[in-house]
Design a protein around this nucleic acid. Structure first.
Length: 420
RNA sequence: GCGGGGGUCGCCUAGCCUGGUAGGGCGUGGGAUUGCUAAUCCCAUGUCCGUAAGGACCCGUGGGUUCAAAUCCCAUCCCCCGCGCCA
């Protein structure tokens, strides 16, 4: 959610953001709802003032034993008028809020302007693309030959985009998670295993309406939704809190399964475990002071890059263009890993600064002294590792001529082997 | 799941029975005073509207009763204690 004051005072900034993002949004409606709502607030406040005045009259008359009938009659009238005004105000207010909740975040000035991912910019590349002097396989062939993944039976029991991981791939999956947690713990991140289901209010704080339909699974008959990432749970963790300035920044390493509908991805990455409904992820989530957030953003990216360098997975850093940017984010870097079996770079990390967009929805504020004005925090999130995609990168890049998989060095101690 | 207790403006707490502008302490900031790293006193301290003066709102949440609700009634969520069930 954006600051209502910004919308009122500098609508041209919002209008530019909407054009840059190529998003359709009825800004004029929002602005007129806003001025409506302000007018109604003034009117109802005045009526309430009147009501308070009469209430005091009644109280003092009763106390001194005078007849209060005339005042009570007036009070009845005022109360009734107030009721209609209030109903009107609440209606306008909620219309305004509903529309405002669908408004995307601002776009940072460093973000390239463009309609879609073709305008994304390569920031830097790391590692050398592996050369093979034999015919290589994709992760599906490799894993099936080694009995590491069962997709057919998963299709039977759950449907498309599900999988049974088996044997040493289960261990490799766990090793990635273990390594990722150790990696962030070393960097003073607090470890968090959050609720895998959260209520609507919490979910609405972290995401924008469209996502409910396209990515989020709802639990039948409960006010609960399966998280698409631990970001959702962790964002809402401090909702309605005022944090102490001295505790900032707060850096969390979230570990959780992630559940995604993948609606609207029909036909893309249909086979294998690259795009699936369920995977595990270790996530970086940071609450920072507004003035520190851009610095924190770069730090989080650097940590993610270092992680893949340790794993020796070649990758490149992309800066997403305005048209490709998620609605909640003001600036996003993706890390794309080289996937030998697909002969291309594919997204494995997404690192975003959401400014005060989520914290405003969730009312997460801070202050240094208890008598100071509170301020909304900035929130940032970045993948450290999403297991299935990294498994694909490892299988495809580290495959051997005889169809086995070399285990990346940092993971060997967790698996007790250097080859699968 | 059952029984009992509870949720008050950053934190702690009074008020609830007996409805009439939410009081105190701590913390924090500012000021006053006494010559000293202290004590005492005063003011401020959340949200919204308003350029401001000022006003409105805020007692877990949502309804209801009433001229008027922190207070009474109903529903609901959460926490604590006991019992039951359970990986």
């Amino acid at each position: 959610m954006l600051d209502p004051k910004l919308i009122k005072e500098k609508p041209e900034i919002i209008r530019k953001m909407l054009t840059d993002r190529h998003v359709q949004f009825d800004l004029d409606l929002l602005i007129s709802l806003d001025s409506n709502r302000r007018e109604l607030i003034i009117k109802t406040d005045e009526m309430r003032k009147q009501k308070n005045k009469v209430a005091m009259e009644i109280a003092s008359k009763k106390k001194s034993g005078q007849n209060a009938d005339a005042s009570i009659a007036e009070m009845q009238k005022v109360s009734q008028e107030l009721q209609t005004l209030e109903a009107n105000q609440i209606k306008t207010e909620s219309e305004y809020n509903r529309l405002n909740m669908t408004m995307p975040n601002l776009v940072h000035e460093s973000v390239p302007i463009g309609a879609d991912d073709s305008a994304n910019v390569v920031v830097r590349s790391w590692g050398t693309i592996p050369k093979f002097d034999y015919k290589i396989k994709d992760h599906i062939d490799i894993s099936q030959n080694l009995g590491l993944v069962d997709l057919e039976r998963a299709a039977k029991t759950a449907g498309a985009r599900f999988y049974y991981l088996k044997n040493n791939l289960v261990r490799l999956n766990q090793a990635l998670l273990h390594f990722a947690l150790d990696f962030l713990a070393e960097r003073q991140y607090g470890l968090v295993q959050p609720p895998y289901m959260i209520n609507r209010n919490s979910m609405e704080g972290a995401i924008i309406a469209d996502d409910f339909e396209n990515v989020i699974y709802k639990v039948q008959d409960e006010d609960l939704f399966l998280i698409g990432t631990s970001e959702h749970s962790i964002a809402a963790m401090h909702a309605d809190e005022i944090l102490e300035g001295k505790d900032l920044p707060i850096r969390y390493a979230g570990i959780s399964p992630c559940f995604r509908k993948e609606a609207g991805a029909h036909g893309r990455d249909q086979k294998g475990i690259f795009r699936v409904h369920q995977f595990e992820k270790v996530e970086q989530y940071v609450f920072a002071r507004p003035e520190d957030s851009w610095n924190e953003h770069e730090k989080m990216l650097a940590i993610a890059e270092e992680f893949y360098q340790k794993l020796e997975i070649p990758h490149r850093v992309m800066l997403l263009s305005s048209g490709d940017l998620g609605k909640v984010s003001a600036k996003t870097y993706d890390i794309e890993a080289w996937m030998a079996g697909q002969n291309s770079y594919r997204e494995i990390v997404s690192c975003s600064n959401c400014l005060d967009f989520q914290t405003r929805r969730l009312k997460i504020r801070f202050r240094d002294k208890t008598n100071e004005q509170t301020q909304h925090l900035h929130s940032l999130n970045s993948t450290l590792v999403a297991t299935t995609r990294t498994l694909v990168a490892i299988m495809e890049n580290f495959q051997t001529q005889d169809g086995h998989i070399r285990v990346p060095k940092p993971l060997q101690k967790y698996l007790d082997t250097d080859i699968i």
